[in-house]
Simulated scan of single mutants.
Amino acid sequence: MKRLLLVAVVLALPVPALAGPVDGACMRSDRGGNRGLCGCIQQVADMTLSRSDQRRAAGFFKNPDEAQKVRQSDRASDEAFWLRYKNFAATAEAYCGG
Rank of each mutant, 00 (worst) to 15 (best):
P16S: 06
V44C: 03
L5M: 10
D46L: 14
G59W: 01
C40V: 11
G36V: 13
Q42P: 04
E79F: 10
R3H: 07
L83C: 09
E66H: 08
S77T: 13
D30V: 13
L5I: 10
C26F: 03
T48E: 00
R71A: 15
T91S: 10
K86Q: 15
Y85S: 00
L5K: 13
Y95D: 03
G24A: 07
D23V: 05
Q43V: 05
G59I: 00
R75K: 15
C40K: 01
P16C: 06
A25M: 06
R35C: 03
L6F: 05
E79Y: 04
S50L: 10
A45R: 00
F60N: 03
C96F: 07
N87A: 11
T48P: 01
M47C: 09
L6C: 05
V15D: 12
Q68T: 12
M1Y: 03
R55C: 04
S77V: 12
G59M: 02
R56L: 10
A89V: 05
M27I: 05
F81C: 00
Y85V: 01
I41A: 02
G24I: 01
R3Q: 14
D46R: 15
L18Q: 14
F61A: 01
A89L: 13
S29R: 02
R3D: 14
N87D: 09
E93R: 06
K69P: 00
M27A: 12
V10R: 01
V22L: 00
G39P: 04
R28Y: 08
N34A: 11
S52A: 13
R84M: 08
N34P: 03
G98Y: 09
N34C: 06
G36S: 12
D53T: 07
Y85H: 06
G20H: 01
M27Q: 13
G36I: 10
Q43S: 13
S50D: 11
A92S: 12
Q68N: 10
